[in-house]
Design a binder for these strands. Structure first.
Lengths: 353, 353
DNA sequence: CTGAAAGCGCTTACAG
DNA sequence: CTGAAAGCGCTTACAG
């Protein structure tokens, strides 16, 4: 029905019914003020005539566009598809459109991208900050998705607790020497996960953190992690702070002829698509991105509604949004710790740490 | 400068300069019609007063929003971040904003998502269609990124030629028995790649295609590909049709104790982030997404400009956009073919084909 | 409960 | 080359 006809306007509905456009507006926006009967009649006419609201006119009149910006400063982040999907979903239910802004990871581009969003009149924006970066106060409501330890954070997974879950899992499997693999010391998320892992592993377990950025600084990107030496040193658990690192660890171990999980367990974070596709599938933690997205959008919605005047503030989150739980996905890459035959000599050491 | 002051409007500039807003509009839009001096003065005033154009007003007046939609029906597609980034970049340079629409891969949701975009008044949209799906004629210009063999396709990589490149690479390495690994027979992209691979490998090379969807139909998702049996059968090359499949192949081979590339070579398509991070890094083909995005945005831009009236058509592409070349990234996962010791008995066969 | 009127900020014929 | 005027479609006080 009414597929081809050009979309009707309120004015046309008003004319067709012999009422004023103000009344049509009131009826359609459901703000009361119109008798039930007239209201019904107007709705029906709108339906029949194929009324499509003009967002442009609404925006011009109200000063609100009904669009929010999504800023992913580090788009190479492989979690991006899921995040974008979750945000889009949540935003759509809340009646918002989502304008994307990318910045190729560079700070200047990030600023430019944010500027473009503002110029387009977004009502607010959701930012997943580049690790270590702070969001300057722009004159628009902003919700931030990061780690609970980030100041000004609005929503996030409970990365620490995720670490605890994984740490306990590994400890319960009997691992007593675990290598934590992280990339960047600046990342709040990574630090939270590391902290949680150590806590979950407990005092019994000897663990050490390998910061890949250090390795890369001395040996260049894409260098080997030197994991087989660690196995020889008695490490049986390798807990990476995100799946890509876990994948790197897994394939390096396998290439060196080490059986996972028989000789070494490997775990990650985030449950990216490949985690379950790899052989063996990787034990990891899944973020509840749907909830995260809902919280972010909801918080933003409130901020937009509230701060007509006092715009530009970071947003206070609902308490239950500050640490959304992660779910442990136990898969074949983790198993009981091998009997640890500790070789006494570190003779084969080949990596810098 | 002028950071805090609320953005000025054309009317304010006009008032400040004692000219009409029409003249300000003409000067700022650079459509001539205004003397050079006055124009310069207006530009300067705009700068000083912190003029920010109102997209809403412009949209209301012109009927164009300056926003295009990006529809990724299969957002789980791990290429999404790169595509989104490239499109956003190209769109920004062309003065468009990008509204995202996701549909969780379901056709109903896809329709809904497209509807939302239309209701928001996008001037056109770029669609990466779900494999096998056709885009119905909506009343809006649409550019499609798929394979050149898709009817109505606008832009795409030359997947066939990519296959040829990879096929030649493998053949030149001495591989004479190659397993092609694809997922879905419905996918034009995958079919193109397979066709190219066969052509590039040439008549000398014996090759067979493993359709993973068949395997999954009988054994369930996530089942083993049964690759080690193939190695025993004399296969030395495993050419997957996208990186995720290559990763699956690589890890399965490694888990079964087969050395890559010494005993078997593995290759993929798309150069996703993990391809170079895995051990050994995977030989693959990189798409020139920047060019693809530019072509798509350009084509869409023309269509939007042209078809004020005749909207709703699919777009005729620039000829050089129909097969954007891919770049072969040779990495460690492919190497000279092992001396093929063909075991005569298929005794260990464990997979269905 | 309903309507007349103004106005959001811009662009576009049309005069001058 | 410049300006006055109308209008894009809506919402919002304000009257009635």
């Amino acid at each position: 029905m009414s597929v081809d006809r050009p979309p009707a306007t309120m004015t046309e509905i008003a004319a067709a019914l012999g009422v004023s456009s103000a009344t049509v507006s009131n009826a359609l926006s459901g703000k009361g003020r119109v008798s039930a009967e007239l209201s019904a009649k107007i709705r029906q006419a709108a339906e029949e005539l194929g009324y499509v609201p003009s967002h442009a006119a609404r925006a011009l009149r109200t000063g609100r566009t009904g669009v929010i910006g999504l800023v992913l400063p580090d788009i190479s982040n492989p979690l991006f598809p899921q995040i974008a999907q979750a945000i889009e979903q949540a935003a759509a239910s809340a009646g918002f459109g989502v304008l994307i802004a990318d910045s190729r990871g560079e700070i200047a581009q990030q600023t430019a991208a944010i500027g473009r969003l503002i110029e387009r009149g977004v009502d607010g924006m959701i930012v997943v900050p580049r690790r270590g970066s702070r969001i300057a106060d722009i004159g628009t409501p902003v919700a931030i998705i990061d780690s609970p330890s980030t100041p000004g954070n609005t929503v996030s997974s409970d990365h620490w607790d995720g670490g605890v879950q994984m740490g306990r899992h590994l400890a319960s499997l009997g691992h007593r020497k675990v290598l934590l693999i992280a990339h960047s010391r600046e990342s709040n998320v990574q630090n939270d996960r590391i902290g949680g892992l150590r806590a979950g592993l407990g005092k019994e377990v000897c663990c050490e953190t390998l910061w890949v950025e250090d390795l890369e600084a001395s040996k260049g990107a894409g260098c080997a992690l030197g994991l087989s030496v660690r196995v020889a040193d008695g490490f049986t658990g390798f807990a990476a702070v995100y799946d890509l690192l876990a994948l790197r660890a897994l394939t390096e171990l396998q290439r060196d002829g080490i059986d996972v999980p028989l000789q070494a367990s490997v775990s990650g974070f985030d449950d990216l698509v490949w985690s379950s596709v790899v052989m063996p599938p990787i034990t990891t933690l899944r973020q509840d991105l749907a909830t995260i997205a809902e919280c972010a959008v909801e918080a933003l919605g409130h901020a937009i509604a509230d701060s007509e005047a006092s715009a530009g503030d970071l947003i206070a989150a609902r308490p239950d949004c500050e640490g959304v739980p992660m779910t442990l996905m136990v898969r074949q890459s983790t198993g009981p710790a091998a009997i640890s035959v500790v070789s006494d000599a570190g003779n084969a050491r080949e990596d810098g740490r």
